[in-house]
Computed example of a mutant assay.
Amino acid sequence: MLRIPRAVIPAFAALFLAAGPVARASRPEALPFRPSPVPGGVAVVPLPGGRPGEATYHGQPLLSRQVGRGWVAIVGIPLDAKPGPDALEADGRTVAFTIRPKRYPIQRVHVADPRLVTPGPEEEARIARERLRIGPAWKARPEGLVPSLVFRRPTPGDLTASFGLRRIFNGEPRSPHAGLDIRAPQGQAVRAPAAGVVVLTGDFFFSGNAVFIAHGEGVVSLLCHLSKIEVKEGQVVKAGDLVGEVGRTGRASGPHLHWSLSLNDARVDPRLFLGSRP
């Protein structure tokens, strides 16, 4: 588990005081996002006895919230999940829920550098090394940080690639699109979609210049293809703080921002959490 240095804990406290009471201190009648129990979506599952408890899904800890008089688990569903019956574990009990089917459209993309579509041995070795660095970032759970589950778009612009697209690069099928692509000019400011702590930055083969922000309780954002990174690992950020500039580094056919959002190490559609915010 990622631990936050004592020196930055007062900064977390200031974040929460500025934002108002954290979610666990209130009893909302509704959650501030749109549940969608499909692959790449989010399921809201009532917990046994209507009380908080330790809940996990495929071995990953889940965040929970009080809604009215009861408690629910908030489950990020992986894009490769099969529709049908599924279950989480809560206090030693199996709690069933159902994943509904969803069919995502196909996107065809041309990339000038063929190595970004079919990497050679040297590139594969680099990708393997980078996965070892990236894996823990997706599971980061900074102590003392509670996500608000209210997000803002990291940069203005039109969506050029929606979440979940089945992508074909240069005629070759590849993994589904696990984020949103926002068209924007080179150098446009990219800002934190919510408060959190920067847990990883770097230049990666596919993602280019990238910033991972842990928002708390296993909620993590990835902002990538940046031309410039303006934050450092361990830095605490507020919603709207500058983290970098739009670019076209990594596997990108033009300047844009890619934003991925992850719950319990499952990439989910960020639009579910945007609501009416810009």
Rank of each mutant, 00 (worst) to 15 (best):
G171F: 05
L200V: 08
D86Q: 09
V199A: 11
A73P: 02
A137I: 05
R103T: 14
Y104K: 10
G171N: 07
I168C: 03
T56C: 01
F151G: 03
K238F: 09
C224T: 12
T98G: 04
R152L: 13
L2F: 14
N209S: 11
G171E: 05
E230K: 07
V231A: 11
P5T: 09
L272V: 06
N209G: 11
T201S: 04
S276D: 14
A14F: 01
N264R: 12
V268K: 08
N209E: 12
F16I: 02
V198T: 08
P176G: 11
A7N: 03
I127G: 12
P39A: 09
Q66S: 14
V38L: 10
E130S: 03
R166A: 10
V109S: 06
G234I: 07
R167S: 02
V231N: 03
T98M: 04
A90M: 12
E29W: 12
L145R: 01
V45C: 09
G216I: 08
T201D: 05
G92L: 02
I134K: 13
S260R: 09
Q186M: 14
F212E: 01
P5A: 12
L274Q: 11
R167L: 01
D181M: 04
A18L: 11
S175M: 10
P156Q: 08
G275C: 08
G120K: 07
L79K: 09
A43F: 06
P78C: 12
S260I: 02
L17N: 07
P61R: 02
D241P: 03
P78I: 09
R152A: 14
P83L: 04
V198S: 07
V42C: 07
L47E: 02
G157S: 08
A194D: 13
L223W: 01
I4Y: 01
N170T: 07
A73H: 10
G187C: 06
L132E: 14
T118V: 15
R100K: 15
R6W: 03
G41K: 00
E89C: 04
P185R: 11
N170F: 11
T118P: 00
D241I: 08
R27Y: 01
V8M: 11
V219C: 09
R277L: 14
W259L: 13
L88H: 07
Q66I: 07
I9H: 11
R271E: 15
R65C: 05
